[in-house]
């Protein structure tokens, strides 16, 4: 249990090597291929073509900038799901000085789709809770592709109550397509487990920082997603339903998925303007999958800044403010009555 910085999953580069390309990234991929060809040529022939390479790199960056400046909502969703995007286990392996995974809900089982454990980040002790997706096919199957069961939510609750007792702040990393829709999940009270977590997280007497690092899939995300500060990576998404599910129900046509993504207003800028998240964490040019270390460092800075800020607020005040924040979340000023 006490393995230091242990992660059972491989990091992006160990598993991948080459960064997979998204459909809208084709022009960028062409640049990458030409640059890589020139580099090979330079090595083999000892010709000095560094100038040409430099020019191509500049052109590629320009193209990246241009492409990522006008991503559609659906394109952002594909970035959030990118196979090389850093996932919870990468953050745990990279950002922490120490990590002790704590397993099990002490009632039914240990859900691999949610990871919990004591952690030390930049000298600060905390509890980490996160959705675990897995990187390799085997890991992904084991983690149910990040779709948690009720025992996962109950494990998170149990450890969060422990953190409350010990006075440890909670950091929650969100990255799930949604809670698992299955027979066992229903039998064991998926809805009840999520509801209990939401209720408990509103009143836990320790600071809670939530970071949406990839997919914020509906109630499955909110079940570990209530906090004093909710941060969100630039190309992550957070939605009441998957664009696919929405297209299937409202349009009855899978081809309308991009339209559904647009309509749902699920991007970080949309959610910031609706007052649902508190801060957008910028991603490296071309998305977190192009420079995972840089993206993870930004997340670390965001977490530490939020924790430092929250640490200055007396706990009674913090919990009252959290309750009030969710009681009023997303509301336009003056829209609803305030009886007391």
């Amino acid at each position: 249990m006490a393995e230091k910085k242990k992660s059972s999953e491989s990091t992006a580069r160990e598993a991948g090597g080459k960064v997979a390309s998204l459909p809208f990234e084709r022009p960028i991929q062409e640049y990458e291929e030409r640059i890589s060809a020139l580099e090979t040529l330079a090595r083999n022939t000892k010709l000095d073509i560094s100038g040409e390479i430099k020019t191509l790199r500049a052109l590629m960056e320009e193209k990246l900038r241009e492409t990522y400046a006008k991503l559609t909502a659906w394109e952002r969703v594909t970035v959030a799901r990118h196979p090389n995007r850093p996932i919870t286990s990468d953050y745990i392996a990279t950002l922490l000085d120490d990590f002790h995974e704590l397993h099990g809900d002490r009632a039914f089982g240990d859900d691999p789709a949610i990871v919990t454990g004591f952690a030390t980040m930049a000298g600060r002790r905390m509890l980490i809770v996160g959705n675990r997706k897995g990187r390799t096919t085997k890991e992904r199957l084991r983690c149910n592709f990040g779709c948690a069961h009720p025992e996962g939510y109950r494990k998170a609750l149990r450890k969060m109550k422990l953190a409350e007792k010990l006075g440890l702040p909670i950091v929650s990393l969100i990255n799930t397509p949604g809670a698992y829709p299955g027979i066992g999940a229903e039998e064991r009270g998926q809805a009840m487990a999520i509801a209990e977590n939401i209720l408990a997280m509103v009143t836990l007497r320790v600071p809670i920082v939530v970071v949406v690092i990839g997919e914020g899939g509906s109630g499955g995300a909110l079940g570990i997603g209530v906090g004093d500060r909710v941060l969100m990576l630039e190309h992550a998404y957070y939605s009441v339903i998957s664009p696919e599910g929405c297209a299937a129900i409202l349009w009855k046509d899978a081809e309308k998925t991009p339209d559904a993504a647009e309509a749902l207003k699920l991007t970080a800028p949309d959610l910031l303007s609706l007052g649902i998240i508190d801060r957008i964490l910028p991603e490296p040019l071309g998305g977190a999958h192009r420079a995972p270390e840089q993206a993870m460092a930004t997340v670390k800075q965001g977490i530490l800044a939020a924790l430092d800020e929250l640490a200055t607020i007396p706990i009674d005040q913090l919990v009252a403010a959290r309750g009030e924040k969710y009681r009023r979340i997303g509301e336009l000023p003056g829209r609803f009555p305030r009886p007391d």
Binding site: A195, I198, L199, V202, T203, S218, G219, L222, V226, Y238, S239, V240, I241, C246, I249, L250, A263, L264, K265, L266, D270, L271, L274, I276, G323, Y326, R327, R328, I329, G330
Partner: peptide, 26 residues
């Protein structure tokens, strides 16, 4: 369930209603 036409605003009603119940409980 939640109303898709109000996007994440409707998702947040899950937290809003639980926050209200927490206050009632307190």
């Amino acid at each position: 369930g939640a109303r898709m036409h109000e996007g994440a605003l409707s998702l947040m009603q899950m937290a809003k209603t639980c926050a209200a119940l927490a206050r009632l409980n307190a």
